[in-house]
Design a binder for these strands. Structure first.
Lengths: 234, 234
DNA sequence: ATCTCTATCGAACGCTGTTCTATCGTACCT
DNA sequence: AGGTACGATAGAACAGCGTTCGATAGAGAT
């Protein structure tokens, strides 16, 4: 592991000169551009203009690379969340923070899969967890209820995000097939199901067709927050 | 794809004779015994006493294998859920179904990662989705609210389960390190954090230490169901 | 000038999912 | 019976992956 940051990158030489920063930045860029399957040590090395093995000086394994890359961008999210001014209602604050986190995962669907995997490496994730928990300190709850509340909220956020994070079947990644057509195709097969056996699916198929992910998430979050509000007796 | 099931497996011959059933059963067995990383085509072929390429006659890719294996066991869960007698309160029914599903994922943590990935292949998952939705038909809700409610519940169930499904760091898989010690080690590092900067983490660290996953899930589920009950105006 | 330590890299290893091609065995048709 | 089509099996090879090894370049200290 590197003990000192790289001071400067020497000019056009043979050997490449990296830094933790550049490694994580390029890793994130790869994840953003083409999803988790595109982040390979070879692809990353090529982007950095160096050899494969060099990356192992900064990172002990791919898992650690993913954890550090995740925490790297979570740092930005944390800053956004810390910039939120606390209001009168703690639950409204929780709501705002959750939406900010969700938005971030919406832009980078891969985040959900690695977020909070290992708080040893993911220091920013831990800080974010703390930040999410602080509003609950202003609620009339037991410590256990607070713990469960924040767990429930992160579950909803990350769970919703993971749903979205599933790599679409290539056709929509290419842009050949739009998201609406993708949903529509599912909806079409659902509509062909027997109406007797699948009354619920028929009831909601029009809602599913072309639905908005953010709205769906907001609905799930609000159910949880309503429950929490009731629990806090406010 | 096989059009006919295998009628009989001829006695001790050279060539192996499979069936969709046996392929999925052995795949599930591998997943159960040693997690997703243990399910490889080579390991599976060895268990089936045949060659690697044979599996591709039943399944077009590993993704499909995972989808079918998942749906295979979801079939059992579906039967359990269909055996539940509907009661007076639709939300109580929802609760019972969710707990049944969660229990199933608790026993097979890998389930959460593949559940509902592709309802084309996962027919039982679709039926389970329908079953989860039916109680909401008895609630005073709009179609959209019903859709969002069931999505929220599956998110909580699967989200909680995925959290648990993360392959533990080998030490606890070996049994060398118990789950309690594993949690305790995290708790210990959390306790060493600055109390000023991490008031919430300090507040809940004792709850985290040695916490029960099922209880944590139940708390998250109940928050959502309470919110839903309020929404339905009951 | 030599030594040490940081940082780099090419080549190789073992593993993976997947494909190619060849084949066996059975059921059916004449 | 003999021929043929096809369901079903399998070994070998391929490309790609994460990871390890051993060698080595460069900069600063002695």
């Amino acid at each position: 592991m590197p003990r000192h940051q790289n001071r400067a990158a020497a000019g056009g030489r043979r050997r490449a000169s990296h830094s933790m920063e550049s490694v994580l930045t390029e890793a994130v860029a790869l994840l953003d551009e083409a999803g988790p399957s595109a982040l390979t040590f070879r692809a990353l090395a090529q982007r950095l203009g160096g050899g494969v093995a060099s990356i192992y000086w900064y990172v002990a394994s791919k898992d650690e690379l993913l954890d550090r890359a995740t925490d790297h961008v979570i740092g930005g999210v944390l800053a956004e969340i810390e910039a939120i001014e606390p209001g009168d209602d703690p639950i409204d604050d929780l709501r705002a923070m959750s939406l900010t986190l969700f938005d971030a995962i919406l832009v980078r669907p891969w985040l959900g899969n690695y977020f909070m995997r290992n708080t040893d490496v993911q220091g920013n994730a831990l800080r974010l967890y703390e930040k999410l928990g602080q509003p609950t300190l202003r609620l009339k709850l037991t410590a256990r209820q607070r713990f469960h509340a924040v767990s429930a909220i992160t579950t909803v956020v990350v769970g919703s995000a993971v749903d979205l994070g599933q790599e679409p079947p290539q056709e929509v990644l290419d842009g050949a097939l739009g998201r609406d057509e993708f949903l529509g195709r599912f909806a079409a097969t659902w509509r062909e199901l027997d109406a007797q056996d699948f009354p619920f699916v028929h009831e909601i198929v029009d809602e599913f067709d072309g639905h908005d992910d953010i709205e769906q998430f907001r609905a799930a979050l609000d159910l949880t927050l309503t429950g929490l509000r009731l629990q806090a007796g406010a």
